[in-house]
Amino acid sequence: MTHPILIRRGRRPRVLDLYCHRGGMAMGYHQAGFDVTGVDLDPECAAEYPFEFHQGDAIEYLLAHGHEFDIVHGSPPCQLYTPLNAYNHKTYPDLIGPTREAMRNVGRPYVIENVEAARPQMVTPVMLCGPMFDLPMYRHRLFETSFPLVEPGHPAHVALCSRNGYLPTAERPFMTITGGKHSRAWQRAAAAAMGTPWITTIQGVCEAIPPAYAHWIGTAFLASTTNTLEVAA
């Protein structure tokens, strides 16, 4: 169960961003009015993560500090669930379940994000996509939340996508943003399309989530708690 939230007047709500990567979700929460703290095992994320960053195990940090935050977001590694793993046959951690269990133990409202193929591991997730937010890409991501979240209208996929690694054109205005050996021009264009211009690596932008998704979720969370927040003078 989740516990009552105490947000003192004049204080921004705080979100703990687990498996934070380079901060795509973090920036969206920030834009929605949150102070953000990120946690990731990869120390290289610190160079580009735009807010407070802690290098370490996400679940360990959550269990130790999760009660200090108003909401917890987690984006467990998705490689186990992606179709590509059917070909590379590598071993990846299955962290959606353990992350959910830890979030529920801490008792704060939570969000879990992952790819479409992870749907069987998630509880009644909502799907978000680029055109819902006027972004030039089809980037489906699933979000399981412990609070009400309504999916925006999902525009039809009518715009054509450029091939992965190619810049968009007038005929194919949408970008395909997945891993590969891409040019720096492609990386900059992808970061601009996603709304993550501070991310300067190809891997970073390919793993990022558009901040617009987190802005939507953060705004919905604040709206859902308007009548239930305990506000102290």
Rank of each mutant, 00 (worst) to 15 (best):
R141D: 03
D57P: 02
S224W: 06
S224Y: 09
R188K: 13
I59M: 07
Q121A: 12
T169L: 07
A117S: 14
A170W: 15
S146Y: 02
I199T: 04
F221G: 01
L62D: 02
S162N: 08
D40M: 06
C206F: 07
G179Q: 10
P131G: 03
N85G: 08
G204D: 02
G195Q: 05
D70Q: 05
R163A: 12
G165L: 04
M194C: 10
H89S: 07
P155Q: 07
W198N: 08
P131V: 03
A102R: 01
G218L: 00
R119P: 09
H154L: 13
P98C: 08
V15L: 10
E171V: 08
L229H: 10
V126D: 04
A26Q: 01
F147W: 04
Y213T: 04
V39N: 00
C20R: 00
V126R: 05
L160Y: 12
R14P: 00
E113D: 02
R11K: 15
Y49R: 01
D42T: 11
Y92A: 10
G218Y: 00
D35H: 10
D134H: 12
K90M: 12
A64Y: 10
I96Y: 01
M27D: 11
W198G: 11
E113F: 00
Y61D: 05
G10A: 11
R141P: 04
C206Q: 05
V150K: 15
G28S: 05
H89E: 14
G165P: 08
H140W: 13
D40E: 04
E116K: 14
P152C: 06
L18D: 01
R22K: 15
W216Q: 03
G56W: 09
L229Y: 12
R163S: 14
P120Q: 06
A223C: 13
Y138N: 01
R104D: 13
V72Q: 01
E151N: 07
A32K: 00
L6E: 13
H65L: 07
V111A: 02
T225M: 14
L18R: 00
A102I: 04
A118F: 04
R141Q: 02
A208W: 00
Y87G: 07
E44G: 11
L84Q: 14
F34T: 00
M1T: 11
Q79A: 09
C161A: 14
G24L: 01
F174E: 01
F133M: 06
G97V: 11
M175V: 06
P120N: 09
R8C: 15
H157M: 14
A32Q: 03
N227D: 15
S75Y: 04
P93V: 03
C161G: 09
V115K: 07
A208N: 00
P173Y: 06
P76R: 02
L222C: 08
E144G: 00
V123Q: 14
E171I: 08
G66M: 01
N114W: 02
N227P: 10
L222G: 06
A220G: 05
A32G: 03
D94N: 09
L6R: 15
P136H: 11
T200K: 12
T176H: 13
I202V: 14
V123S: 15
V111T: 05
W216Y: 13
F143E: 04
D57C: 06
P136D: 07
N114V: 00
E171L: 12
S75M: 03
P211Y: 05
A193Y: 02
G33Y: 09
A117W: 10
V115T: 06
V158P: 11
I7Q: 11
W198F: 11
L149N: 04
T226F: 15
